[in-house]
Amino acid sequence: MRIPCPICGERDRREFYYKGAAVALDRPGPDAGEAAWDAYVYLRENPAGRTRELWYHEGGCGAWLVVTRDTVSHEIFGAELAGEADV
């Protein structure tokens, strides 16, 4: 698997750390309530198909990325810096 790091270019999957769905970008406020926090930390859409997810270029530039990828075909559609990604 090859991941296109916006900073380093296409690199082997070995250089990256996977965190999970990009929902983690959308951190609720401290008072958002039980349901919002449950959804944020635990519940997952978990689609069979296209999804946005978080990868960390740990063995490279250290950037956190939002990668758009298909969980069935493993096709990768693109990657952007997490700090610049839409929530």
Partner: peptide, 13 residues
């Protein structure tokens, strides 16, 4: 393999 997948197949790492 450490990434979300429904492919029932993995990769070399």
């Amino acid at each position: 393999d450490m990434y979300a997948s429904y492919a029932a197949r993995g990769n070399l790492p």
